[in-house]
Design a binder for these strands. Structure first.
Lengths: 129, 129
DNA sequence: CTGCGACTTGAAGCGCGGTTCAAGTCAAGG
DNA sequence: CCTTGACTTGAACCGCGCTTCAAGTCGCAG
């Protein structure tokens, strides 16, 4: 029923040390013990997948920890999530442009490649000037 | 003609210390000196914008350094850029899903919000299980 | 000549996200 | 019983991307 930490580590792709680290950070908690060994409910795997996704998206672990406890009444937290959504949207746009640039790089003949106007153009404007 | 490091720092949004750090990493180089002060051509601003973009996209500085020198004959490097393109594509997909989840969170009534099936669904599948 | 302020250097420090280490504990197997 | 092997703990360490610090150097204003 409960999964041993080794099991969870293997299935989630995280090291046991990482799971303990996440526990210290308040991201997960063991649902039981097998001797000294931590044991987790299978739902923890979903939670870890969620954490991995958010982390890959550039969220700090501390930030994820607060989001994980979010309840519908947390107006302030909701606003922060909305702000994050806008942030992620921008990131998607930026990454899309970067992807296009990389795609172009594959067929570009400029030397060096980064000097290609088309390559640079896709990266968006220089901050100011 | 050449821009003082302070000028470049201000326009790029990077600290002078960061510019020196980038120099040590081989990402940029000063085109002259004003006494001891580094001076840069305006093109450096473009280069810095490119670096910022790549860095925000999750590229390591060392990786960016190799890409910056990429020439059309670098077959291996080209392949790595192509690999990066696929990676970035995946990331775009993932972030798009995350954005949708966050968007939903703004109107979700689940308590806690992360337990919402719709929220979780958008995050993609659990690795295995 | 005397500040002043913004730079220079190398080296040390920081926050993040973990990993690694030393020493100890447990469950199962022979 | 004793070993084996995977875990436990707290603490130290690591790589990355910078920042900060101490001590020194420059250009310029007064």
């Amino acid at each position: 029923m409960l999964l041993d930490i080794g099991e969870v580590a293997q299935r989630s792709g995280l090291a046991p040390s990482a799971l303990r680290f996440y526990e210290r950070k308040g991201l997960i908690m063991a649902d039981g013990r097998n001797g000294l060994r931590r044991a987790y409910t299978p739902e923890t795997l979903e939670r870890l997948a969620l954490i991995a996704c958010a982390r890959d998206a550039g969220f700090a672990l501390a930030e994820i920890a607060t989001f994980l406890g979010a309840r519908p009444s947390d107006t302030e937290l909701r606003e922060r999530m909305a702000a994050k959504e806008r942030e992620v949207s921008q990131r998607v746009d930026q990454l899309t442009r970067l992807r296009d640039s990389l795609r172009h790089a594959a067929v570009c003949t400029h030397d060096p490649i980064v000097d290609c106007p088309e390559f640079k153009q896709a990266l968006g404007r220089v901050p100011s000037g």
